[in-house]
């Protein structure tokens, strides 16, 4: 029986695809690679790699410990490379002021609510970052998170730097 090998990219080893244009503008496809973006990002820089109206998916380089963040809606963190500890804590009465209309917002320091727990997530693991809670990421080694969220105050849009612009 043939043995199949599943190819998952990583920060250390990825092979980007391409757009072969026949009669179109490559910019319309907004083509990028999450590992390539994360390889040049600052730790926990929230770089949009997909945008659909108010919704975004962000490529995040996880390295060291992030600030505490919260959002007025559920978010979902998919680890695409490495290992990330996700710490969850309830918001306290003074923390909700940090919540903008949408997207994730940084807290000033740690939240004041009860500790909910933590998750150690590796490649392929998806974690709910629930509304009403704050979260903090920690990674001992550079790792990659894909975040399903909404366009927020700290979402970085640098499309011209990350997408294929020529045929």
């Amino acid at each position: 029986m043939k043995t199949y090998t599943t190819n998952f990219g990583s920060l250390a080893d990825f092979t980007k695809g391409s757009i072969d244009i026949i009669d179109d503008d490559p910019k319309r496809y907004v083509f990028s690679n999450i590992f390539e973006v994360a390889s040049t990002s600052r730790p926990y820089e929230k770089v949009a790699v997909g945008k659909n109206r108010q919704y975004v998916v962000e490529a995040i380089r996880a390295e060291g410990t992030s600030e505490w963040r919260t959002a007025p809606h559920d978010e979902f963190a998919l680890v695409m490379d490495g290992e990330v500890e996700i710490r969850l804590q309830k918001l306290g009465p003074d923390d909700t002021a940090a919540t903008a209309e949408r997207g994730s917002n940084a807290l000033k320091g740690a939240p004041s609510g009860a500790m909910m727990g933590r998750v150690v997530a590796r490649r392929g693991h998806m974690t709910l970052l629930p509304v009403g809670a704050a979260y903090q990421f920690h990674a001992d080694k550079p790792s990659v998170i894909l975040l399903q969220t909404q366009d927020g105050p700290d979402t970085v849009h640098k499309w011209a730097d990350i997408i294929q612009t020529v045929a």
Binding site: N7, F8, G9, F14, T15, K16, G17, S18, I19, D20, I21, I22, D23, D24, P26, R28, Y29, V30, F31, S32, N33, I34, F35, E36, V49, G50, V57, M80
Partner: peptide
Amino acid sequence: QVEDRDSGAALAKVTMRSGDVAAMP
């Protein structure tokens, strides 16, 4: 294989590998 939605005219071929992100207009 990407074509014009209404006419079927060929527009592009997009090869995607792990980590790639692409929009379909």
